[in-house]
Write a protein that binds this DNA or RNA. Structure first.
Lengths: 195, 195
DNA sequence: CGTGATCTAGATAGATCGTTCTAGTGACTA
DNA sequence: TAGTCACTAGAACGATCTATCTAGATCACG
């Protein structure tokens, strides 16, 4: 199955790169992790490691967004959604022994100054996330500009919390950032209903 | 001068690793950047790349803390200090063409799941930063637990903003995170003076 | 059955990695 | 003056890196 192998390669590369970064992950290691023939990697990704990484970034970004959106959709209200996101993130990070946090952050920092096409890919993913978050807050009545800033602030808090959680091997940073994010969201929504 | 060469090596390694990460930076590249003889690296750091990286993490963490503390000390009040920190960070990031942000974040994400001694070094630095920030807020009358959470939240916001700023090549994330941090600090201080 | 196209398999190349090693330089001390 | 020690200099080693290449397996379809 062709598409199957291709998917396994992307998935395996995503798993390794999110944990070890771009330069820290080798093509052969990806082949092993994905249980895919080495030759198949260059068959499906003639552009080599860069092309593969670009797809890892985009696919990882998309899946993460879908995951977060599903948490929001399942929540009774926006503030609960925010809380559930941070709690779910904490649970995932703990369950994976502090390995799986943001799918693209490790790559993003590595390539920001060294690989312009990949940097652009990460920038696009972040922009998509911010736009999606802003949509949620705008739908709740928050003015467009404020909604965007609020969405961006939450994503940044989450990213910072992911970083500290992985580094300290603790979910406390995610809990603290979650509380702060919830308070911020409550404040913004209170300002709306007060009008 | 011996110590001079040693310092140049650490400084050069810090410069490269903060921009390209740990695995992305080679020993030979460090020697070139530091204008240091290749042999000297293993003379001063017999433990090799790991020992050098550990010192980069600790020294980078210390210098960054000193820098931030000096900004706070120069500010007329705590809230202004917070604002100046984010504004100063934005200025630095812009001035270095989005290369120099957090001295250890790139390394921290890379080593979190792959190199336990280095992971511990990054964890200690983050812990030191949080403790220093908590001190500032506690001195302003904020209860110890709240002060620590506030300090941690700001560092996480800053880290997230650094990540997005580098990825998007824009200072907007730092500006947004700065506004959010200022608002958070004002709120916490207002709660103190209201008592 | 035959024939391309697609995919698998891994050997190979050439560069670079971290590290070790030996040799040498220069300065300070006995 | 001889000897010791800190430091410099870079060749060399084995491992590993990305990428290419050839050959064989598998498939869809005439």
């Amino acid at each position: 199955m062709a598409a199957d192998t291709r998917d396994r390669i992307v998935f395996g590369a995503a798993t390794l790169m999110r944990r070890q970064g771009y330069t820290g992950t080798g093509i052969k290691q990806i082949a092993t992790e994905a249980r895919a023939p080495f030759g198949s990697i260059y068959h499906f990704f003639p552009g080599g490691k860069d092309q593969l990484a670009a797809e890892v970034i985009r696919r990882g970004g998309y899946f993460f967004q879908v995951l977060v959106e599903s948490v929001f959709d399942a929540a009774p209200d926006l503030v609960t959604g925010v809380r559930d996101c941070f709690e779910g993130a904490a649970e995932t990070v703990r369950a994976t022994d502090y390995q799986d946090a943001c799918p693209i952050a490790t790559i993003a920092l590595e390539v920001a100054s060294t690989n312009e096409p990949l940097r652009e890919a990460t920038a696009e993913v972040f922009e998509t996330w911010i736009a999606a978050a802003a949509d949620r807050f705008r739908s709740a009545g928050i003015p467009a500009k404020d909604a965007r800033e609020l969405g961006a602030a939450m994503i940044m808090s989450l990213e910072g919390a992911f970083l500290l959680s992985r580094a300290t091997r603790s979910t406390k940073p995610l809990e603290i950032a979650g509380r702060a994010a919830v308070a911020q969201a409550e404040l913004a929504l209170a300002a709306v209903s007060a009008r």
